[in-house]
Amino acid sequence: MEILVYGTINSVSLALMGLGFAMVYGISRVPNFAHGALYIICGFVTWTLLQKLGLPYGLAIVLSLAANGILGILMYRLVLIRVRGMSISEIISSYAIGLAILEGLRYGGFRGMTYTLPVFMDGMVVIGGVPVDYHRIVMVIIGILLVAGLWLFTHFTKLGLALQGMAQDERAALMLGIDSDFMAMLAMGFGAILAGVAAITILPLGNIVVESGYHVLIMSIAVCIVGGLGSWMGAFFAAFIIGYAQILSVVFLGSHFQMVVALLAIILTLILKPSGLFGQQKELEDRV
């Protein structure tokens, strides 16, 4: 039971981390290696608004999410737009931006264990003999709502459908009047906001430390590779596979095996099925 409950919680938090990365890559084919940095900076911005300026928690969250979206859009407009389509340059430049943000925060004084966000709700409940605090339950609910919302958005709204079209064939979308640079910019903004949502829901469970930016980046890459790059539904399922595998390894092997499991999952996927669980674009093409 413990495995089931904590496996689910862990999986949802991985899915939250990975969704933004998967979405940006799926739509604009830009591997956003600054994803972890966007995650952490959102945490620090929220902390600053909340603790230094004394804004109410809800307002601080909304403002920092908006700031994150703008940051993502600026990143695209100022830098990534010039290298889009060249994978190596995309990786190098987005990683460089990520490093600059993360190390900049470190030198800017955001060090140590003193930065924390309050949980949304205090208290806990016992599920099947396992104590779970309310915040973790809220996190699972947010994760599920987010995935459901994304699914509805990409299937039933004009903008979501356009993003889906662009993800599959950018030039064909262009022929239908879908401006690909604008859409890629929007995707980057959405991705940054998703990173922010992940930060705000996950960070209250621990301290805000710069290092977890790298951790989030590695986990989201793991989730996306196992799920199949570009398929955010795949990323969601992969999050559950890795999430449970991690909890199992904690229970049976020891807590320091958590990271090993994720990295092993990347390597095994690349060896056994490089396109990932749901990366089946190629197969579909072969059949027709």
Binding site: H155, K158, L161, A162, Q164, G165, A173, L176, G177
Partner: peptide, 9 residues
Amino acid sequence: ENLRIGGYL
């Protein structure tokens, strides 16, 4: 969905 994406404009 293909047709709907076509109807973007």
